[in-house]
Structures are given as C-alpha cells and as structure tokens.
Design a protein around this nucleic acid. Sequence first.
DNA 1: TTCGTCATGTAATGGGTTACATGATTAC
DNA 2: GTAATCATGTAACCCATTACATGACGAA
Lengths: 192, 192
Amino acid sequence: MLEFAVLGLLQESPLHGYELRRQLSARFGTVRSFSFGSLYPTLNRMQSAGWIAADDTQAAGKLGTRRKVTYRITAEGKERFAELLGEGGPSAWADENFDVHVAFFGQTEASTRLRILEGRRGRMEEKREEREEVLRSTRSRMDDYTLALQQRGLDSVEREVRWLSELIDHERAGGAAKPRQTGSTTTGPTQQ
Amino acid sequence: MLEFAVLGLLQESPLHGYELRRQLSARFGTVRSFSFGSLYPTLNRMQSAGWIAADDTQAAGKLGTRRKVTYRITAEGKERFAELLGEGGPSAWADENFDVHVAFFGQTEASTRLRILEGRRGRMEEKREEREEVLRSTRSRMDDYTLALQQRGLDSVEREVRWLSELIDHERAGGAAKPRQTGSTTTGPTQQ
DNA sequence: TTCGTCATGTAATGGGTTACATGATTAC
DNA sequence: GTAATCATGTAACCCATTACATGACGAA
C-alpha cells in the first residue's frame, strides 16, 4: 500500500522522504498517514528493488553532509506501478487499498476503474446486508448506545454504496461531468 | 482492543471461542472482525493472565475428547474490564478503540462517556479542519477522482462530528431519549 | 460415506507503530 | 544562542493476518 502510494507520487515528481510523507497525509489521509519509521525503511527497500533511485545531486553545501535524499522513480518502478494500477481484483477493493486505487484512477484504464468500483460496491452491499440482518435480529436486545453505533455503521455503508453508484453511472456515461458527493458538503456546511 | 471486547462479551455470558468470534463480528463488525489466528492465542494469554477461565464442564461425550472450550470472566477479569471502561483519555477516542468504548457505554460512568465523546469530537474537528485546508489549497490541481475522494472524506468526517454532537446533547440532557442517526436510515432506505 | 460447518490451534509472516538517536537549517 | 521544524534513520515491539493442520459432528 505504502509502496503503491509512493510509486504514484514519485511518478508525478521526485520528492524526498519528509515531503513525501506530507503529500501522503494530504492525499490519502482519509485512510491513514504513515510514520517515518515505516516510510524510510520502505524507501530503502524500494531502492534495493530498483523501483526508485536516490538523486545524489543533493546540495553538497558542506562536504560529506548529505541531507535531503531526493528519490525519483525508475523505469522498473514505472513498470511496477503500471502492474499495480492494472490490479482490478478483490485486493483493489479491500479497505486498505481502495482509496489509493481511486486516487490514481486518473491513470487507470477505464475498464479497470469500472471493475474496481463495481467490486467495491458488491462488497459494500454484502456488508450492508449483514448489518441490516444484525439490526433486524438483535435490535430489541440492544441498548441505545449499541443501537446508535449500529445505525451509524449501517448509514455509512449505505452512503458508500450510493456514492459508488454515482461514480459508476458517471463511468458508464463516459465520465464527462465531475462526480459529486451525495450530501451537499461544499455548498452549505453542517446543515442537516 | 480484542482483549477489551472479549472481556465485555464474557461479562455478559460465558462463551467459547468460535461463538465469541461471531458475536465480535456482529457487535464490532463496523470496525473489523478478528481471525481465529488472533482470537485463540489471545484467549490463552488472557487465561494465563487470570482474567478468564476455561469452563471444563465440556460435554465429555467420548472420553478424553475435549471440544468447545467455554470461557467465563474471573473476578480479576472484571477488575481489568472496569479499569478499561474507566479509561477516558486519548486512547479511548482513537479510531481503533472508540467504537468498542461506545459499545460498552451502557456500563460506563456518565462523566467518562462525556469525556470520550467530547475528546472524539475534538479530534474529528481537527481532522475536518485539515481536510478543508487540503481541499482549499489544492482543489484546482486535483483531478475529478481525487476530488470526489477528498470530498467524500470530508463529508464523512463532518457527519461524524454531527453524530457526536447529537450524542453529547443527549448526554447533557440526561440521556432520556434514544440518540438517532442524522440521516433517516431506519425510516426510508436509500432516499437522499 | 462424504461433505459442510463447527471447533481449536500453531507457525510464519507482515506491516505497521513507538521510542530513540542524531544532526542541519531557519527564524526569532 | 536557542528553539522549532526539517530531515533521516534504527531497534524493539505489537497486533494482527494467512496458511496450515487437525479433528468432531450432523445431515444428505
């Protein structure tokens, strides 16, 4: 996941670790933001694998002091990224990966985009079913807090299904207009 | 987390591992459901710690064949659970723990409940601010997919803030009526 | 008698975290 | 000159997962 995100960002432009992490939080912060303790070792691994390379054109202000290791993607890295982009199976619509895949949809083939969105929707529909069943069968035994939690859970799954359906419709229509949120987040804040 | 959830469920009634996992998925499935590979070792650890005990009243149908190890909570386990219930600091409103805490709010002190809800809201408000800032500053450079993702992220954070505010209001009012979802999930499905 | 599901467990692995350590650069 | 933040890295650990292995029980 980190690997995929890093390749995607470096595909756009070379970056050093610290800055990379900032972009990571901004772009994928919906999901999580990574710690340096996992970022730097990952960068080293990826370099060993040949997917990225350190730009040794570093400032060299004082002699010997290398700071700011800027990484760029290599040809092999681009290949690897393309491979990951093409991944349209279940792993692509798993919780940990889905958001990152969507973030790179701009570079993903249309058919793969559709597969991922539909796969994700299918999975969310299953989840909705499960949640509905739980609510149906145990509602009476639940206290108010558990109930509130369950309903919120169900609600957010339903919302995701709707959101996905909108995106899918746009895909099928050719993806001309911008897909928008179900709620009107942008127009008026916090009105219910 | 698993530990906390297990103690809470065993507090209600003794259960064996397999059944425990089912309840876990039903009650906390909003967050995640655990695999046996983590459940069973956890049960053994908790038994060693003295928080739970295996009921060896198992069926003994054939001699020597023990199946269905039913666990019950011990006095020490109850103490430990109470300790976890009382935890109202940042760890209680972290993503991984918050839902479980809410699920056990029925057994949590009112003041702790409020602390957790307000702590969570504070954190979500920060997150909202961050997301708004990202949208404000990079909207123009974002493609449609990234934008859709970002807006959905912001929307769900805003929703959580509203949900928390409702719960907090109910807490302050004495918690008489059932706290409800913002959207009308229960009344009419899938109308926006 | 065989298949599905109930039931328990282990081993290897993975993917991250926190805490720690170090030092340069910038702003006051 | 000193504090904040930029910047990189390591080591110990944690909590989970997957894959594997085993076997009882009930139903067709």
